[in-house]
Structures are given as structure tokens and as C-alpha cells.
Design a protein around this nucleic acid. Structure first.
Length: 199
DNA sequence: CATGGGATTGACT
DNA sequence: GTCAATCCCATGC
């Protein structure tokens, strides 16, 4: 059997309940330009709960969220950071998985250079992509990538490599003020790239 | 058209 | 532990 080529996840992967997709994205690979990393932390958001941007309904901002699954939703947070999400569930449902942290795989020196250019002082490997704002900085992802197809790029998400076997920890989402009780955060147990606070 | 609030990070007490 | 930086956009007048 031919070795699997690096290619996007199947088209139907994202067209499922967002919490399930969030868990299964752990271990998958995000790549952009020369840089790539394994997803070690995610959170799910759904228009049925108030922490989700799509809770307010269809607006210019949430257009991507309500669009077809498998696209990138990139938005600016706190006026400073770009945050990367994977749109899920059928078109017409506003749901997405926030990619919160990566374990760097390729392009590490470029990641370090970009993080340094953004003013970061701590630049160990575990400081490059250990947060949703950090990883977009490190990869150089901007708001212009909003709406891009995650199967074909420029931002691409690829399946887990064979033999991925790390326990996943479930917990509550971080940094939100509404629907704080939902346990929709997933992370790789003990991984140093997971953002703080660790579950 | 004015206002206010963030799915964050880094620096500082 | 606290706090400011800084942009987009939803909301309300």
C-alpha cells in the first residue's frame, strides 16, 4: 500500500458535531508556508452557547462561522492577536474549533524569528506556539487567511501521523466569561506546549 | 456616528 | 496576583 501523502483531512471530517471534531483534531498537523506543528490543544465553540461569536447570529463578522465546514475562521482578539479556528458542522450552523497550541515540527527558527520580532522575550521551543495568539504569530497567519480552505491551503490541516498515541485531557475553556462550565477544551496530557493554565 | 467589549499576551507589584 | 496595549465589529443613539 502506498504511503499516505501529506494531504488535508477528508471533506466530511469537519461536517460533524464540533466537540467531537475538537477532540479528534488533537494530534493533527497545521502547516503554513515552511512552518508546521502538531495540534496539542483545542476548544469547541457552538452558536447555541453565548461564548461563541456566532451566538449573535449571522453578521459580517460571523459569516465564515456559518459558512461551509473545513474553512479557516481567523479573527482579531483584543486588538492585537489573530486567532485560528476550523469551521465545523453543516453550512448554516455557526461552530468552530479554536486551535490553541501546537508542538513545533518544522520551520522552528522562522517561528522563533517571528516571535522575537513581535517582542517576545522567552523563545524556547515551548514558548513559540503555546497559546492561540502565539501560534499565529509564529506561523505568520494574518486575518487575510479568514475563509481559506483548510484542505487545500494556504493554511492546511493534515491527519495524525501513524502511531499517534497520547492521552487527551478534557477540561473547561479558558479566557471566556460566558458558558464557562462547558468542558469543551482538549489537550495532550503533560505536553509542554499546552497553554496556561494547564488542566 | 460613538461607545464598549473581548476565545491574549507580556510586563510588572 | 494586576494591568495595559490595540483593532474589529456589534450595538445603540
Amino acid at each position: 500500500m502506498a504511503r499516505r501523502r501529506a494531504e488535508g483531512l477528508p471533506a466530511g471530517f469537519y461536517d460533524r458535531p464540533v466537540v467531537q471534531v475538537a477532540e479528534e483534531l488533537i494530534g493533527c498537523t497545521v502547516s503554513y508556508g515552511e512552518c508546521s506543528g502538531a495540534i496539542v490543544e483545542t476548544e469547541a465553540y457552538h452558536d447555541s452557547e453565548p461564548a461563541c461569536h456566532a451566538f449573535v447570529g449571522l453578521t459580517p463578522r460571523t459569516e465564515t462561522l456559518f459558512g461551509p465546514p473545513g474553512r479557516a475562521y481567523v479573527y482579531r482578539s483584543y486588538g492585537i492577536h489573530a486567532l485560528l479556528n476550523a469551521v465545523c458542522e453543516p453550512e448554516g450552523v455557526g461552530a468552530a474549533v479554536l486551535i490553541r497550541a501546537l508542538e513545533p515540527i518544522a520551520g522552528i527558527e522562522q517561528m522563533r524569528a517571528r516571535r522575537a520580532a513581535s517582542g517576545a522575550q522567552r523563545l524556547g521551543d515551548a514558548d513559540l506556539c503555546s497559546g492561540p495568539g502565539k501560534l499565529t504569530q509564529a506561523l505568520g497567519i494574518e486575518l487575510t487567511e479568514n475563509g481559506g480552505d483548510l484542505r487545500t491551503g494556504p493554511i492546511r490541516i493534515e491527519p495524525r501521523s501513524e502511531g499517534w498515541d497520547h492521552p487527551v485531557v478534557i477540561g473547561t475553556r479558558i479566557g471566556i466569561t460566558k458558558a464557562v462550565e462547558l468542558e469543551w477544551r482538549f489537550s495532550v496530557a503533560g505536553n509542554r506546549n499546552v497553554s496556561r493554565p494547564r488542566p
